[in-house]
Nucleic acid binder design. Sequence first.
DNA 1: ATCATACTTCGAAAGTTTGCCAAATTACAA
DNA 2: TTGTAATTTGGCAAACTTTCGAAGTATGAT
Lengths: 106, 106
Amino acid sequence: MIAACKTSKRKKPTDFRKAADVFKALANPNRLLIVDALGKGEKCVADLTELVGLDISTVSNHLSVLRKVGLLVDERRGTQVFYTLKNACVLKIFCCLDEFHAHLGR
Amino acid sequence: MIAACKTSKRKKPTDFRKAADVFKALANPNRLLIVDALGKGEKCVADLTELVGLDISTVSNHLSVLRKVGLLVDERRGTQVFYTLKNACVLKIFCCLDEFHAHLGR
DNA sequence: ATCATACTTCGAAAGTTTGCCAAATTACAA
DNA sequence: TTGTAATTTGGCAAACTTTCGAAGTATGAT
């Protein structure tokens, strides 16, 4: 039996669906690469495209997946669109994962 | 710019792939329901099948997805197989998500 | 206005996931 | 050993994801 967190309350089916949507958005190595990069500061689509090495349309799609679940915000400045992490929680989740893999020993 | 966690180090492509696999395992409402239930203690497949309301073979598949990424461990006792959370990190991730949704206001 | 740049949206192909059913496996009991 | 209960595995169809290239949109420069 493991202690739950302070903020946790009785969960409804929609809670699991919403949570699953966020995990779905994070369930792709290229999107994780993007999130990790944005953890260091905002980037435009072209920068991220160079980083992940896929077609710009594909990267744009990945960005929209992350934006739709509220992980990112976009801001147009001139012809460029800059993306930023919406909040630090995602990076915390990364930390939990680091711990998890350390615990697993892989 | 957001502070990274203490344990974070330079990430390799395989790190993102492994992390994505864990998120993939969590990217399904029924599997989240299972993880949440197991947070309260071990359960056998039949118990979990009743909980999620899908075919037992489907639940068995979900459990194997979660086991493969190291989130669960199984233990056979007689004819039954009991599943347990491998560690508390997953529940911490849930907490991060709760925070995230609170921050988003949905 | 026209053009170039930066990005998004659409449509299609290939691959993956989810679910059910039926068949196979495992452990125990009679 | 034959049967029965619990779980896993294999096969399949429907739905979803990933990627690309082409076409579309928005902004700023000429």
